[in-house]
Computed example of a mutant assay.
Amino acid sequence: MKIAFASPISVSRYAGCEKWIVGTANALKQRGHDVSIYATPYTPERNVDVNDVLSRGIDYHEAWRFNLEDYDIVYMVYTPIVWRLFSTNNPKIAGFHYHLCLPSDIEKRVLENIPSALRHYDVISVLTYWSFKLLGKRDIQNFNAVHIPNNPFNVSLAHERIFFVPNWIDLNFYRPTKSKHDVFTILFVGRHDWEKGWWDYNAICRLLKKFNLDIRCISTGRGSSYVEGLGFLSDRELVDTYSSAHLLVYPSKSDMFGLVIVEAIACNTPVITTSIAAHKALNLPLIYADSVDEFVGKIISIYKLWSRDGEYEDMIRGLREHVVKYDMNKIMPGFEDMLRQVATET
Rank of each mutant, 00 (worst) to 15 (best):
V11C: 12
K133M: 09
C17K: 11
I148L: 11
N167D: 07
V189A: 03
P270K: 04
W306Y: 15
E45Q: 10
S224P: 03
R340C: 05
R216H: 04
T273K: 09
S156R: 14
R31L: 08
F132I: 03
R317M: 06
Y303N: 07
R175G: 00
E62P: 05
K304A: 14
M1H: 07
D214P: 01
N51P: 14
R46I: 15
R65Q: 06
Y242R: 05
L238G: 00
F132G: 06
R161I: 04
C267T: 05
R161L: 09
I93V: 09
V48Q: 10
P251G: 03
V123D: 04
I9D: 09
L339Y: 02
A281S: 11
V342S: 06
P103R: 15
I299K: 01
F257L: 05
W199V: 03
F232Y: 15
K2F: 00
H322A: 10
D240Y: 11
S10Q: 14
Y78R: 06
P91L: 02
N268K: 15
W64G: 05
V77N: 15
D139T: 05
D240V: 00
L28A: 06
D122F: 11
D139M: 07
I276V: 09
S36Q: 11
Y75P: 00
Y71V: 10
F188N: 12
D255G: 03
E313Y: 08
L111G: 00
E336W: 01
I114W: 11
C101A: 13
T269H: 05
S307K: 14
W199G: 04
K253I: 08
